[in-house]
Design a protein around this nucleic acid. Structure first.
Lengths: 154, 154
DNA sequence: TTTTCTGCAAACGATTTGCATACAC
DNA sequence: GTGTATGCAAATCGTTTGCAGAAAA
């Protein structure tokens, strides 16, 4: 299992699936494709993915989308992100430490989410992995506070 | 607005509420009390809080609990944490940088959540605050990967 | 051919909301 | 008094599940 330093392709998907006894299906392929093609769009929900699929003629059921997102996360191809807006969101896992990690500032008042770049946690990740025995795929950092607007309103 | 370096008390609650035009109510007081008295129990869901309330005679409706948790988060007294287990969880915001931040390792396979101590992000927090204009109340870090058990199963 | 996967629709469960009443200020 | 909060029940909405048919390996 080579550490993957590119965005994921169909070949990675096939390998990771069979490695764990899962099957390659056109639906799973399509759903991964959506993420690769929309890697600019961050944090897509199941609904978002479902809608993008329908736009490109793919008649994939919503339940299948949910199951695939779950599976792709388990495989380390996607990562789940939550902003407290009531739905799970997913992104391609940028396993390459040279690829910028982007993290989030969340306003506790207006719930606005702002992204920022940050890549200072890789050393910490290594330490944690050694101490815990985890094989770490990714990390996520969120800062909670009041955004500029909500500060000036009070 | 002094930086609060203690766990929150009723006086903090009253101050923060009136500061923003909200009212002090026995329900809000009771709910905060639950968190202070159970500060050992991390990440409680609305249901958890509701059940603890009922055990201590408080007849507070579940909807009120939800509304209060949301409000207390907005006030920076609680912080919301999510583990992808389908419900939002809350903890007292430990605003004191000397109080250990505890963060989470989440297994993408079995969904196990493991806590760890970490307090290396305070400098980063200061930088981010300056650059973004956010007034930061707290931060949260999650690492995703495979736990020991799930690694050996594959 | 055996096991896994999909699609649909129904079930579920956490959270939200409308509204009448009660309460804080 | 006035505006906000509560409680209940109903509504909502994201997500999961059961099951029969379809498709990988």
């Amino acid at each position: 299992m080579s550490e993957n330093h590119q965005l994921f392709g169909v070949q990675d998907l096939r390998a990771r699936l069979s490695e764990r006894g899962y099957k390659m299906t056109p639906q799973r392929k399509e759903i991964l494709k959506i993420f690769v093609e929309h890697s600019d769009k961050h944090h897509m929900s199941a609904e978002d993915v479902y809608n993008l699929l329908r736009k490109s003629d793919s008649e994939i059921g919503l339940a299948t989308v949910y199951r695939a997102l779950d599976l792709l996360s388990e495989l380390g191809i996607l990562v789940q992100v939550e902003f407290g807006d009531g739905c799970a969101r997913y992104e391609l896992n940028t396993a390459d430490p040279k690829v910028h990690h982007h993290h989030h500032l969340i306003c506790v008042k207006c719930k606005r989410v702002i992204e920022f770049e940050e890549d200072l946690l890789d050393d910490l990740e290594t330490t944690i992995a050694e101490e815990s025995g985890f094989r770490i795929l990714n990390h996520e950092v969120k800062f909670f506070g009041y955004c500029k607007d909500c500060q000036s309103q009070s």
